[in-house]
Design a protein around this nucleic acid. Structure first.
Length: 401
DNA sequence: TCTGGGGTCCTAGGACCC
DNA sequence: TCTGGGGTCCTAGGACCC
């Protein structure tokens, strides 16, 4: 183990989904654009607005209809995940030509240990080269953060967007990191921030220099308090975990209904489709799960998760459905309104090479391998009429009752 | 201002075992 | 057997991130 200081880059693709769409279509350039599902049957929220759209006040998670009120010329493009994955692959393929020491943090960001790479080139020059290459080769704007560890590099890349290059040196944290409001700190979300504000911590500097550690522990918990202070003082891991993104730890799928649903038959049918999707994704990843669970969300947004360990790890849709339905039966109270249902698979392991995977998709009549919830919507529309499928379905049920 | 879907990691209590 | 300590697994839930 060497204690020599490392040089870590954090590279972040700016407005990633929106940038991919603009890279695909020159006509979108310099116009307000947002990636968002525009299916009127589903609640559409903004997933990725570009900077032009942000100038109008449009933000991620905003409802599409509200965004259109802020900017009626907003171009709304439905998400194309496969396309974004391709761009992501291209981006990381390029980064691997710079160094093999890469930790993929998400689809659009990664950490690089460039300590060795910087023997022959100044870090700033390397950052500029990477940024220029990513823009030319991938047609994507990026921001680069440079620091002695992953935390400072991440905070630095966030400091200036788009197309920023920022260095956060530990000995200078009083001049940049410490001046930032506590909400800006990576790892402090909308629950922790108000708690910290409540005890007089308004900036990251306040946190780093907070005197009453006992009070801090009471406020956010002992373990959390320790890691928050450690990071606020410029500490952090510089270890690159090259495998952290190669194997999924969990797989899930869920669906929010247009209107809350209380009809059990519809819920069970939807579970079937969701089980199929989870199974498909597990098989695609070559994984099977030892724990299966369900998610129920109520109209007041309260959510419960209930899970169950199973004897033999599985990625079989029929088994997943069976377990999910069992749990559902235990926890669903007739008359409950359900806003969202979902299934998750935890404790994943690799599928043994020599075991032949038997497709069980035949078990589900008329639901295809890549069945998605949309198939169910269509199915129900065919059965109960085109508009307001939930209402139509429920009305049909009520007539029978 | 009630908003999707996919994830990660941590904690804590109870069961269970030695 | 009335009583300690340690460890792991399971489940629920919280918080955060993109």
């Amino acid at each position: 183990m060497s204690n020599l200081p490392k040089i870590i880059f954090h590279i972040d693709l700016n407005c990633f989904f929106a940038s991919c769409e603009i890279a695909e279509n020159e006509a979108y350039k310099n116009k307000p654009l947002a990636v968002a599902p525009n299916d009127p049957l589903r609640r559409g929220i903004i997933l990725s607005p570009n900077y032009e759209a942000r100038k109008h006040g449009i933000k991620t998670t905003m409802l599409v209809k509200d965004a259109l009120l802020l900017c009626k010329d907003l171009i709304v493009v439905p998400p194309r995940m496969e396309l974004y994955k391709e761009y992501s692959r291209k981006f990381f393929d390029y980064l691997f030509t710079v160094t093999p020491n890469i930790e993929i943090a998400s689809i659009d960001e990664g950490y690089l240990d460039v300590t060795d790479a910087c023997r022959d080139i100044h870090p700033l020059a390397l950052a500029e080269r990477i940024q220029k290459d990513v823009l030319e080769k991938c047609r994507l704007p990026s921001s680069v953060g440079i620091g002695p560890n992953k935390f400072l590099a991440k905070m630095a890349s966030d400091y200036k967007k788009p197309m920023g290059i920022t260095v956060f040196r530990k000995r200078e944290i009083d001049k940049h990191l410490w001046l930032l409001p506590i909400e800006k700190m990576h790892g402090v979300g909308k629950k922790t921030a108000p708690k910290l504000r409540g005890i007089g911590i308004d900036t990251i500097g306040d946190l780093a220099n907070f005197r009453d550690f006992e009070l801090l522990k009471e406020t956010v918990g002992a373990a959390h308090a320790e890691s928050l202070v450690y990071h606020a003082r410029g500490g952090g891991s510089a270890e690159i975990d090259a495998n952290n993104f190669t194997e999924a730890q969990s797989v899930s799928n869920s669906h929010t209904f247009t209107n809350p649903v209380y009809d059990e038959a519809l819920l069970r049918k939807t579970f079937k489709v969701i089980a199929n999707t989870v199974s498909y994704r597990l098989q695609k990843a070559g994984r099977k799960a030892q724990t299966i669970g369900i998610i129920l969300k109520y109209p007041d947004l309260r959510q419960i998760n209930r899970s169950r360990a199973i004897d033999n790890a599985t990625n079989d849709a029929a088994v997943i459905y069976e377990v999910a339905e069992d749990i559902f039966t235990d926890y669903f109270n007739p008359g409950d309104q359900i806003r969202l249902i979902g299934i998750f698979a935890h404790r994943l392991s690799a599928v043994e090479e020599d075991v032949k995977q038997i497709s069980i998709f035949d078990n589900f009549d008329k639901i295809e391998q890549e069945a998605r919830i949309d198939d169910l919507v269509k199915h129900l529309q065919d059965k109960f009429g085109k508009n307001q499928i939930n209402r139509g379905y429920l009305e049909a049920k009520n007539e029978n009752a």
